[in-house]
């Protein structure tokens, strides 16, 4: 890990829009460190995942140590430390979805995308070779009434069947 932190290839800075958002964020809290989560979300939106350069930059901006940023990044499952596909497909597999056959949806996605399911330490395992999709299992997405559900980036898809999954994948492939 220490090697990763030292090997900073391309330095990171916020682009204009994100810089403006960050400036607005920082004024909301009495201490700068509190802006950690929204700042990391901004950075991840810009580069796709949290690189060592991002951690260093965020640490400087929030006036904390790089280790503290790393500490936070490793705790929260929504922050990625490896590159992910353009579309991250999150499949809910907690009890209410399991009662409505989320396993069928997951198996169908696995077959369609011809990939395995990503684990938190190995995102590449669930990413398609063309870098378009990453397939991962997540815990409850708070949509149990319309189970089974998947979330593609920010969009929730409800009451899934194999046909609906095909439609969603077709739409995404055409984009």
């Amino acid at each position: 890990m220490s090697d990763k932190l030292i090997q900073i290839e391309t330095p990171f800075v916020f682009n204009g829009e994100n810089q403006r958002e960050f400036d607005a964020l920082i004024g909301r809290y009495p201490v700068k460190e509190a802006a950690m989560l929204p700042t990391l979300h901004l950075a991840q939106r810009q580069v796709g995942y949290i690189t060592p350069a991002v951690m260093k930059y965020v640490a400087e901006q929030l006036e904390v140590s790089v280790m503290k940023v790393k500490d936070v990044v490793t705790f929260y499952p929504m922050f990625f430390e490896e590159p992910v596909g353009e579309y991250v497909i999150r499949v809910c597999h907690t009890l209410p979805c399991a009662l409505r056959d989320c396993k069928g949806v997951l198996d169908h996605l696995k077959a369609k995308l011809d990939t395995d399911v990503a684990s938190e330490t190995n995102l590449a395992k669930g990413t398609t070779p063309d870098g378009k999709f990453t397939l991962m299992k997540v815990e409850c997405l708070a949509s149990c009434d319309v189970a089974p559900v998947i979330m593609v980036n920010g969009d929730l898809h409800k009451n899934l069947t194999s046909e609906k999954v095909d439609e969603i994948l077709n739409d995404l492939s055409e984009k």
């Binding site: 909301r28 460190e33 989560l37 929204p38 922050f79």
Partner: peptide, 29 residues
């Protein structure tokens, strides 16, 4: 009165009130 939204990042434990507070302060929840 000012209202600010603060996004979490996928950790269940941040729904516990003190975990939420830690997370809001920019730490592990």
């Amino acid at each position: 009165v000012d209202i600010y939204t603060h996004p979490g990042a996928g950790a269940y434990i941040c729904g516990e009130e003190t975990g939420l507070i830690e997370s809001l302060e920019g730490k592990r929840g």
